[in-house]
Nucleic acid binder design. Structure first.
Lengths: 228, 228
DNA sequence: GTCTATACACAGATAGAC
DNA sequence: GTCTATCTGTGTATAGAC
């Protein structure tokens, strides 16, 4: 699969996300009309991602956010109760989106090599499609409360476990070499992570996410595949 | 080389670093006695690393730093003019240390494979020995001014260039496969980075830096080496 | 060289008019 | 639903005694 396909499949769900944000928080916020809320949540989230990319979430002031969104301070506080709650909102919203996508693109009935490829690609493509969120979560995880922090760690571990299982299944079938699968999985994740952490580097060099995905697969397969 | 050896070679220079910090800033600070300055700079830097690891540099207040170092606010400001200058001090201090170490451990006359191994190991071992600094620089780079930011980027690029050159030399000698060396170098760097970014994960699993280094080398060599 | 006390600026958050 | 004006707490930084 190429990134273009992936994105089209994903696209439809993007608008839904902000509806979810509104609906799940309807009781906590002062806005009543869904259409307004959805439009402005999108605007607010985008602005947060931008400003945070430039200076970090802590350094972003509500006045920064106000001027970037062209909304007044008073208006902003109609959408969330505090800066901390805004952080929680962003975090939760992305978290649920990601879990959904992984379920959608991973078929445990495929051959192990096929599974390995599609899981690695799905993760890279998703981190491309939702890059601001991935970057934000990684860099701002310090600001999360312990419970939210735990959610981030479990997600890290569950995607790693997914890889480990595939590698084990492949080894059983004699397709993959017998290696330290958990460490292999960590290294695969490290490569995936570099894509969204060092975006500026790859962009400058005109490496697309498809290029990068192919290279990661080549690298991984040359290590894992049984070459008898 | 194992990490233990590396650390011993390095150790001697550790005390020197804080002398350097003092001497280079003698004009800007109110402290006159080297011995006091060195002792307290060390205490201050360590505290900054700790607190920043917990909540980030922006979120660290001067009062946090004061209570962690058992020094008063007034005293702290005798060692640096502002929080921003403290950031610059930490940044500069680590930067020069790292460049020194790389020169020390890389011998361009070795065989390419030997060079590749020693450069990868030196980077990993250094990031282990000076982990707080590496982590700090990565996570807090947003707070740097453009000039300092540029220094960080150049360093990233120069370590990558070093790898590219080794890979090219190896290819010429027929030792390494013909691949996209720059992308290979990026991926090697991604693996190195994971070591200090995900310290908690490897620690929990009792993976030592020697284990990790060996695995990264295995991974890399299985991709790069010509297997004819 | 280190301390306590304090000035001052600015951030988060709210009240209440429109 | 959005705005402006404002309150209040907290953070950086300094003055000046010891």
């Amino acid at each position: 699969m190429k990134y273009m396909e992936f994105k089209q499949i994903l696209e439809s769900s993007d608008a839904e996300i902000y509806k979810e944000v509104f609906q799940e928080n309807q009781d906590n916020i002062r806005i009543k009309k869904e259409k307004t809320a959805v439009k402005n949540f999108q605007k607010i989230f985008d602005a947060v991602f931008q400003i945070t990319y430039e200076k970090g979430f802590q350094a972003m002031t509500m006045r920064d956010l106000s001027s970037r969104t062209n909304m007044s301070l008073g208006s902003l506080y109609a959408y969330f109760a505090s800066k901390e709650e805004l952080l929680a909102l962003i975090h939760k919203h992305g978290s649920s989106m990601i879990t959904n996508v992984f379920e959608k693109f991973h078929n445990p009935d495929d051959e192990p090599l096929e599974q390995l490829r599609s899981v690695i690609k799905a993760h890279l493509f998703l981190s491309e499609a939702a890059r601001p969120w991935f970057y934000f979560t990684f860099m701002e995880s310090k600001n999360l409360n312990p419970e939210q922090m735990q959610a981030v760690i479990s997600m890290e571990e569950s995607t790693e476990n997914r890889l480990v299982k595939i590698l084990e299944a492949g080894e059983e079938q004699g397709l993959f070499r017998k290696t330290n699968h958990r460490l292999t999985a960590s290294i695969i994740k490290a490569m995936q992570q570099d894509w969204y952490l060092k975006r500026w580097k790859y962009k400058k060099r005109e490496i697309t996410v498809d290029d990068y995905a192919d290279y990661v697969l080549e690298f991984t397969e040359s290590f894992c595949l049984n070459k008898e």
